[in-house]
Simulated scan of single mutants.
Amino acid sequence: MQIQVLNSQISDIDIIFQFYDMAIAHQKKVFNKHWQGFSRELIETEVAENRQFKILADGAVACVFAVTFNDKLIWGDRDKDSIYIHRIVTHPEYRGYSFVKEIIKWASAFALKRGIKFIRMDTWADNEKLLKYYTGCGFDYVGVVNMEKTEGLPKHYEGISLSLFEIKV
């Protein structure tokens, strides 16, 4: 299978939202929390800023994810020299293909070219399955943060605790 990580385009926005809808449906089946949806403006901004990505598997969109380069509300004083990965969604037909590991390879190369020191991500603190999965992919678990200020973040961040993960590049 040929894998490519590419920037998403404006023409991909409907596909991105289809992936988010699939993810929310899946989250509702397997966990007691789920995303609350995202604004089209957020996704358009990420696309325009080259921070929204897709993984193609033999030419088909198999996974989407977004990145940011600051995450102060989540990471506090540690918010520096990092690429933050958010909203990884794999199409159900491609689950099991280890796209998180592909994202790590891509992010490592991206970080090395730009002098970025860490690849970071978060998930709900009580999602044991994802905690094990992310550490199994090479992330170090670095603790829990209780979200107090969430202005500007998607709604699902309100009043939750997050587990934090990082890889030193």
Rank of each mutant, 00 (worst) to 15 (best):
Thr45Tyr: 13
Gly136His: 07
Ile15Lys: 11
Trp124Asp: 03
Phe110Ile: 07
Ala60Thr: 12
Arg87Lys: 11
Lys54Ala: 09
Glu148Tyr: 02
Ala57Cys: 14
Asn50Thr: 13
Ile88Tyr: 01
Ala62Asn: 07
Val47Asn: 00
Glu158Thr: 06
Val64Gln: 05
Ala60Lys: 11
Gly138Val: 03
Val47Ile: 02
Glu148His: 10
Gly76Pro: 11
Glu93Gly: 04
Leu164His: 11
Glu41Cys: 04
Pro92Leu: 15
Asp140Ser: 10
Asp58Val: 06
Asn146Gly: 05
His26Ser: 04
Leu162Pro: 00
Gln27Phe: 02
Ile3Gln: 03
Lys105Val: 11
Val145Glu: 09
Gly115Ala: 13
Thr45Val: 15
Ala107Phe: 01
Ile15Trp: 03
Val61Leu: 00
Ile3Phe: 05
Ile24Cys: 05
Leu153Glu: 07
His34Thr: 05
Tyr133Asn: 10
Asp12Gln: 08
Ser82Thr: 10
Gln18Ala: 07
Gly59Ala: 11
Asp122Ile: 14
His34Cys: 06
Lys168Gln: 09
Tyr84Gln: 12
Phe19Ile: 02
Tyr141Gln: 09
Thr135Ala: 06
Val61Gln: 04
Phe99Tyr: 05
Leu56Met: 14
Leu164Cys: 10
Tyr141Asn: 08
Glu41Thr: 09
Arg51Phe: 11
Thr68Leu: 10
Val61Cys: 02
Val142Asn: 06
Tyr157Ser: 06
Tyr133Met: 08
Lys168Arg: 11
Leu42His: 03
Ser39Tyr: 14
Asp79Met: 12
Asp77Ala: 12
Glu166Lys: 05
Asn32His: 04
Arg87Ile: 07
Asp79Ile: 08
Leu131Asn: 11
Ala25Asp: 14
Asp81Cys: 12
Gly143Thr: 12
Phe139Trp: 12
Ala60Cys: 13
Ser39Asn: 13
His156Lys: 15
Phe165Cys: 09
Thr68His: 04
Glu166His: 04
Arg40Gln: 04
Ile119Tyr: 01
Tyr97Lys: 11
His156Gln: 14
